[in-house]
Every structure is written in structure tokens, then in C-alpha cells.
Design a protein around this nucleic acid. Structure first.
Length: 115
DNA sequence: GGTCTGACTAAAT
DNA sequence: GATTTAGCCAGAC
């Protein structure tokens, strides 16, 4: 396992967030809240987004959207269009910064991993 | 060391 | 049913 060191601090929460984000299958998306709940901090969805602030290349942050499937975090990418292009490249339909067929491509970690 | 903001979510109005 | 407010925790000023 490759330890992610954003800093020399604890970043334990960040590490878990990245771990789950990496587990998102190709062509699927999940929400910050879903990851947060899986990590045990259901009400800290914001922290997930914050954790993504480090956004290492190993983490497919483009597969993480808010609960309505909106590409809320696209502005944090190197280029605002990168997120949508990557999602489309994986077969996810994106229209007006929103993931189409969200119900179909949605991937819930606590539903897929905690079986 | 107190205050504000933030890639969100859910409940209340 | 849509809009607004409050709650969350952690980092930045």
C-alpha cells in the first residue's frame, strides 16, 4: 500500500477518503456524503471535499460529485472541463455540468464494499 | 486563539 | 414543491 503524504501530519481521514475514491469503478460516480458515511462521518461530507483539495493524481476526484450528480468540484481541477471530459471518456453522460443517468452510474461504497 | 470559509447534506419553512 | 437555514469538522487568516 502506498502511503499518501500530503503533509507530515495525521491526514488519516484524508488517506481513507483517497482510498475510497480510488475504489470507485470506472464509469461510476459517487457522492461526497456517500464516502463520508462510509468513513463514519456522515455529516462531514464537506471534509471529503476538503480532503480532495489535495487531489493527488492517484485519486479519480472526477468520479466524486455531490449528491445530485453536479460537477460542483470541477472548478478545482487543472481545467474546469477536465472533469467532464474524463467522465465522458468513461462513458458517463454529462450535461450542463451534471451527471446524467446518475441513478445508473451511481456507486455507493457502503453499498458495494460493505456487503 | 477566535472567527470564517468551504469540492456537502438534510431538515425546516 | 422549491428555497432557505442550520449543522459538520477541519484548515486558513
Amino acid at each position: 500500500m502506498k502511503p499518501i503524504k500530503l503533509s507530515e501530519k495525521n491526514k488519516d481521514f484524508f488517506k481513507d477518503t483517497y482510498a475510497v475514491a480510488r475504489l470507485i469503478p470506472k464509469g461510476r460516480v459517487t457522492s461526497y456524503g456517500a464516502i463520508a458515511r462510509y468513513l463514519g462521518m456522515a455529516r462531514s461530507a464537506r471534509m471529503v471535499g476538503w480532503a480532495m483539495n489535495g487531489c493527488p493524481a492517484d485519486v479519480p476526484a472526477h468520479r466524486v460529485v455531490n449528491r445530485i450528480g453536479m460537477l460542483s468540484g470541477k472548478v478545482h481541477f487543472p481545467t474546469p472541463t477536465l472533469m467532464q471530459e474524463r467522465l465522458e471518456a468513461e462513458g458517463i453522460e454529462v450535461r450542463d455540468d451534471q451527471v446524467q443517468n446518475l441513478k445508473t452510474v451511481y456507486w455507493d461504497p457502503s453499498n458495494e464494499l460493505s456487503l
